[in-house]
């Protein structure tokens, strides 16, 4: 019983500490810089780490008067947790469904912009696995990064599609980022793993891996903001300028990246300590166009909410008032 009491005390203390972590004013530096803490997952990935690394390397944050501190998460709900707890002011590139689920549970967050529009995921397997296409994935073990991530939503959507076709559902397992999925596939822990271009494309080309499914095969996500940028509601209210400036820099970084792909890739490779060659990294631009990485307009809000309900992140659809409170696009930079 002493153990029980001790454990209860620990839980209560931890909870109290979490409760006390309310976000406050943005620290303003001596020279008037605004401090913004951001959280995102898998920093090696094109859509997540690249704009941050470029903005840092090119001095875009500094020019805009921002001091940006980044925290890396496991993705999905872990990014949302970081924002809800106040550890981060803004979460970038997180799935809209996890944000909807958190909001439906009264989490103080807002979706402030789109981040990636369209489902840019791919799934791979070993050549001798017997898996060659989507239908072979029925009943198989497939990896995703973290609960509530876009890779989780992708696997759930793929599973639902297979079930609609009368096939057994996929056994989805939280594995981590693409490198973790590769290890898990190679060691037989799962049958297929997820990736985003350009990771493992060289191994696909050499025949070490086979691509077995693509995000474009699943429903019509082409015009849906599959990943979004979110903010802590209290922080946003107190620091609207910092939020707006951050999104401006995000937009500027992507513009610059698409105008200077070679230099961007060089920055990406060095900052993320990637082993892939710059030639391989440059192939990312074959898979993404600038429009898919826009911060506005934020399309497919209804699909995001429907997915959150269908896949168990929220119990019921949001009302119109809730939708307008959650999807708060007032922090978008003016055209």
């Amino acid at each position: 019983m002493r153990r029980a009491l001790t454990n209860l005390a620990i839980v209560a203390t931890a909870s109290g500490a979490m409760a006390a972590c309310a976000p406050g004013d943005t620290d303003t530096g001596a020279e008037g810089t605004m401090e913004v803490n951001i959280a995102f997952s898998n920093p090696t990935i094109f859509t997540t780490g690249l704009p941050f690394y470029v903005a840092e390397a090119k001095g875009f944050y500094e020019e805009a008067g921002l001091q940006v501190n980044a925290t890396f998460t496991g993705g999905g709900s872990e990014t949302v947790q970081a924002v809800v707890s106040g550890s981060a002011d803004i979460g970038t590139e997180t799935s809209g469904a996890s944000a909807v689920g958190a909001y439906a549970s009264d989490a103080p967050i807002k979706i402030i912009s789109a981040s990636t529009t369209g489902l840019d995921l791919q799934w791979f397997a070993l050549p001798d696995s017997g898996i060659t296409d989507r239908s072979d994935l029925a009943g198989k073990r497939m990896g995703y990064s973290a609960t509530g991530s876009s890779s989780h939503i992708g696997v759930l959507a793929l599973s639902a599609l297979l079930e609609d076709e009368g096939l057994p559902p996929i056994q989805a397992e939280a594995i981590g980022g693409p490198p973790d999925n590769l290890t898990a596939v190679q060691t037989g822990q799962i049958d297929a793993g997820w990736t985003q271009p350009p990771f493992f494309l060289d191994q696909v080309a050499s025949g070490e891996l086979v691509l077995v499914a693509d995000g474009s095969e699943i429903g019509d996500y082409a015009d849906v903001a599959i990943r979004v940028n979110i903010g802590n509601a209290a922080w946003l209210e107190e620091n609207p300028d910092a939020a707006r400036t951050f999104l401006e820099v995000q937009q500027r970084s992507w513009d610059w990246i698409f105008e200077n792909p070679e230099e961007a890739v060089s920055i990406w490779r060095e900052a993320a300590e990637l082993e892939l060659t710059e030639e391989v990294l440059l192939t990312s631009f074959d898979y993404y166009d600038r429009e898919e990485l826009r911060i506005a307009p934020l399309d497919g809000q209804d699909v995001v909410v429907d997915d959150a309900v269908e896949f168990g992140f929220a119990e019921e659809p949001l009302s119109d008032d809730q939708m307008s409170e959650l999807f708060d696009l007032s922090y978008l930079p003016e055209e």
Partner: peptide
């Protein structure tokens, strides 16, 4: 516990943690 935490189902989270405490106390 992990899923409850990641899906922000705080009540379920505490129920699960409470049960783990009960199981621990029962085993001891």
């Amino acid at each position: 516990v992990a899923e409850s935490a990641l899906l922000f189902r705080t009540t379920e989270l505490y129920v699960s943690v409470g049960l783990i405490v009960v199981i621990s106390a029962t085993f001891i």
